[in-house]
Nucleic acid binder design. Structure first.
Length: 128
DNA sequence: GCAATGACGCTCT
DNA sequence: CAGAGCGCCATTG
């Protein structure tokens, strides 16, 4: 399946002013569950003409994602604060309060059963 | 074509 | 709660 940037931008445009959504959330809304990285990539490639409120997309911990340029990060934070969003002491946004909860539309698809993340070291490996 | 990279996210330590 | 590891996959060199 091909990831469409337009669909990602369309989902971002749905985020109301004064609220934020996570990369994963946008990916799901755009129809590409688990492709959160692609969302960030699409936003990075965005040429900021003001038509897409990219500043309203944050990571799952409610913080502005670190970027190469620290300036861009502060700029994003300033934009959000201008919309009335409050940052906590740890530089995080309370998603329970400012997170966007889309009404209707696409509901969360049933999550695929988590895979074992534990296949790194077998007991034998320790025996060397 | 192959390897590295990254505005992410989840699990296990 | 913080860090480390790994899966994810479009882009880039």
């Amino acid at each position: 399946m091909r990831v469409s940037r337009e669909r990602i931008y369309a989902a971002v445009r749905r985020i109301p002013r004064g609220r934020v959504a996570t990369y994963g959330q946008i990916a799901t809304l755009a129809g590409f569950p688990r492709l959160a990285r692609q969302v960030g990539y699409a936003l990075a490639a965005l040429d900021d003409d003001g038509s897409v409120p990219w500043q309203r997309v944050v990571n799952s911990r409610g913080e502005v994602s670190p970027r190469g340029e620290p300036d861009a990060e502060r700029f994003q934070r300033a934009l959000l604060e201008a919309e009335g969003i409050v940052f906590g002491a740890a530089g995080r946004i309370d998603l329970a309060r400012f997170g966007w909860k889309p009404r209707g539309g696409r509901r969360a698809a049933p999550r695929r059963p988590p895979r074992r993340a534990d296949r790194r070291a077998t007991p034998d490996a320790y025996f060397l």
